[in-house]
Design a protein around this nucleic acid. Structure first.
Lengths: 344, 344
DNA sequence: TTGTAGGCGTTATCAC
DNA sequence: GTGATAACGCCTACAA
């Protein structure tokens, strides 16, 4: 693992100056003979440009950071899968930051932008604190935030619209003739929890159904908690005919409980999840789910960042990605692709 | 977004030399008064060290690359989830490379090691070609390969043992009294496909069951292909009482087909998947699966790399991660955690 | 067309 | 202790 050759090594070998070597390597006009000599020397030595030195001079690293709470979370993964190819195609490397849901880590990532080891950052903050906003306004590189940012913040911002998403689900269930539609939500002090609760209330009003506290159960965004919450709801309202779950994991928990209780899905109870993760298609019955466009948000965020990296300044932009209802067997059993199956 | 301050800026402001600034910033012995002045200036200016300049001098980037075929693949993700915290704890950033299963891209990643923008690399190659080996031996930074590398290659190597893993599954099924154990495999010209085929043959011999060509069906590592293959096998051998599937997706396909055919799982047919992905726990019935230790392999790879980055030279190491059978409802229905459920 | 020289921001080696 | 000063490897005026 000998020390790699530099342009100086090549220059000596080719008998020219380092300036000529640099020119050849960068395709600047040079005499044919010089080009030949330099290329030959570079080849023989197995020369590879030192990206660090290059960055120091050019002030560009061709690296972009993506920071989110947890690499293992399917929603972030969906984003990552879209972000990656967009950046790669534009010649950028991707640096990953998993903040483990620790706010201090997020601030740290923002701070480290000053180290200039990346040209830009895409971040999905858990919540946006004062500290975030302060660091954002002082950021030394372009940042795109996926999530909610206060009005007037001077950052590109990509949002989901879970409020509307809940509406899609309720509409769908209502059209299927469901009238006692329960909601299993996560904590109300989270951004998604609050938005979904509000969306549920309004969507019911929109289709003319009364809001009933008994039909709402708060748990948390995990399968086990989902099971627990659904059990409670079922005990209170045995004749519930549909369940809107605040994410897919909760919905899987709901399927567990309904199955154990001898309820048929979707005939007795229709179930809808949210986020449309891979799990939705894997479950049985496959799960109707509201996609909040994680993939799309990732893609848009990457594109916005590239624009800023390539183009110049422009007004900060706000893009809201519309939700989409993906209908599967848990609400529309008979028309499902694997329609021959059933639960009895 | 004004140009950031450098040690020169600080030096001027504090009325000292850049050498002193550097010393203070690096905690080298300095007079108290100087420390105070420098820190004050740095604070006021919001100074942040330039990582690029630092790397140029120190020849360390504190970055490590992880290269695999596809960010979306759950097996790679399981690795990533383990690699990330190990590296983070050691102060390394993670650079992600998704090669889209293109060999040229892999070579490219290997080549780019010469650019010195990372201190090391963890790679999961699809297959190891001559070109790989050549680049590996010339690599200018430590590399850990997850996968099969020819004997005698001078690289750290972390392997799975799917051969043994298949044995675990067959043993389990045999102990449950299954005697007509089918195998749904992927292409035999892939490394995993070949290993699993060999493991199946030998495991049958080990438990004293005859090998029967009719019980083997080759498809591909996807759900739809799994469905197709299982359909064929079922037509040929209607009384098959267990299916070993070469990965979880195939196994999900198997569940689809068995359900449609009115076979009860596990009573009529027990089903085992491989890889133990998240999907295994999400399906119904939940899927018994052979874990090939993706997570563990990631962890070990990260640790090996760190050792090399911190310590000095040592002989290349070969670590084989043992497989583990994760029993769930698809083979052991009654004892399943959600045991009240059934498929009828 | 080519070479010399200066600078990107740090670190580290010297003398003082 | 501290301050010049020389690298690290590359790019780029500017001069020849």
């Amino acid at each position: 693992m000998a020390d790699g050759p530099t342009i100086t090594t090549i220059a000596e070998r080719a008998g020219v100056s380092i300036a000529s070597v640099s020119r050849v390597l960068n395709g600047l006009p040079t005499r044919q003979e010089t080009v030949r000599k330099v290329m030959a020397a570079a080849d023989e030595l197995g020369y590879v440009r030192n990206a660090v030195a290059r960055s120091l001079k050019s002030r560009r690293t061709h690296q972009v950071a993506f920071a989110m709470a947890d690499v293992g979370n399917p929603a972030y993964l969906a984003m990552l899968r879209q972000i990656q190819p967009v950046l790669k195609a534009a010649g950028y490397r991707l640096v990953l930051h998993s903040t483990d849901a620790v706010v201090a880590d997020e601030i740290d990532v923002l701070h480290s932008l000053g180290e200039r080891y990346v040209d830009g950052l895409i971040m999905v903050p858990l919540r946006v604190t004062e500290a975030h906003l302060e660091m954002l306004s002082a950021a030394r590189a372009p940042v795109v935030i996926i999530g909610q940012v206060p009005e007037g913040s001077r950052v590109d911002n990509v949002r989901a619209d879970s409020h509307t998403g809940v509406g899609l689900a309720i509409d769908h269930l209502h059209q299927l003739g469901r009238r006692r539609i329960g909601m299993i939500n996560g904590p109300l002090d989270t951004v998604p929890g609050a938005a979904r609760a509000a969306g549920y209330r309004q969507a019911l009003a929109d289709v003319g159904l009364p809001y009933d506290d008994d039909l709402v159960q708060i748990g948390d965004f995990y399968r086990a908690e989902g099971r627990h919450a659904v059990t409670e709801l079922l005990a209170r309202v045995p004749d519930v005919d549909a369940l809107l779950c605040a994410n897919d994991l909760i919905a899987l928990g709901a399927l567990d409980v309904l199955r154990a209780a001898g309820k048929r899905v979707p005939r007795d109870v229709a179930v809808v999840g949210m986020d449309d993760t891979d799990l939705a298609a894997a479950s049985w019955p496959s799960l109707t789910s509201v996609s909040l466009g994680s993939a799309e948000r990732g893609k848009v965020a990457a594109e916005l960042l590239l624009e800023r990296l390539q183009g110049g300044d422009r007004e900060p932009r706000l893009v809201t990605v519309p939700p989409r209802l993906v209908v599967r067997a848990s609400t529309a059993g008979e028309s499902d692709a694997q329609g021959k199956g059933n639960l009895e």
